[in-house]
Amino acid sequence: MTIWNLGSINADMVYAVPHLPGPGETLAAHDLKRFLGGKGTNMSVAAARAAAHVCHIGAVGPDGGWAIERLLEYGVDTRHIASIDVPTGHAIIAVDPDGENQIIIYPGANRVISTDQVDHALSSAETGDILILQNETNAQCHAARRGADMGLRVGYAAAPFEASAVKAVLQDLDMLFLNEVEAIQLEQATGLTPDQLPIADVIVTLGARGARHFDIRHGHSRDYPAISVQPVDTTGAGDTFTGYVLAGLDRGMPMPQAIAQASLAAAIMVTRYGTADVIPDLRDVQEFRMR
Results as ranks from 00 to 15, higher is better:
residue 287 E to R: 12
residue 59 A to N: 07
residue 69 E to W: 04
residue 91 A to G: 07
residue 96 D to G: 05
residue 121 A to V: 08
residue 281 D to F: 00
residue 214 F to A: 05
residue 201 D to M: 02
residue 2 T to S: 15
residue 55 C to L: 10
residue 276 A to S: 15
residue 143 A to R: 05
residue 133 L to T: 05
residue 280 P to H: 14
residue 259 I to P: 00
residue 72 L to K: 14
residue 75 G to L: 03
residue 207 G to I: 03
residue 282 L to Y: 03
residue 282 L to D: 07
residue 236 G to N: 05
residue 157 A to E: 10
residue 201 D to V: 04
residue 47 A to F: 08
residue 111 R to W: 06
residue 77 D to H: 03
residue 125 A to I: 03
residue 78 T to G: 02
residue 166 V to E: 02
residue 262 A to Q: 04
residue 21 P to L: 12
residue 176 L to V: 06
residue 13 M to I: 07
residue 274 G to V: 00
residue 119 D to C: 09
residue 42 N to W: 05
residue 216 I to Q: 13
residue 254 P to Y: 11
residue 119 D to T: 15
residue 156 Y to P: 05
residue 262 A to V: 01
residue 66 W to Y: 11
residue 152 L to F: 15
residue 215 D to E: 04
residue 272 R to L: 12
residue 46 A to F: 08
residue 37 G to Q: 01
residue 290 M to H: 11
residue 174 D to E: 15
residue 70 R to F: 03
residue 145 R to D: 13
residue 279 I to R: 03
residue 187 E to A: 13
residue 43 M to G: 00
residue 275 T to H: 01
residue 194 P to E: 08
residue 287 E to A: 14
residue 259 I to Y: 07
residue 116 D to K: 10
residue 220 H to G: 13
residue 204 V to R: 06
residue 285 V to F: 10
residue 41 T to Y: 05
residue 46 A to K: 08
residue 11 A to F: 15
residue 51 A to Y: 03
residue 44 S to H: 02
residue 234 T to E: 06
residue 84 I to Y: 03
residue 161 F to V: 06
residue 19 H to Y: 10
residue 214 F to N: 01
residue 166 V to A: 05
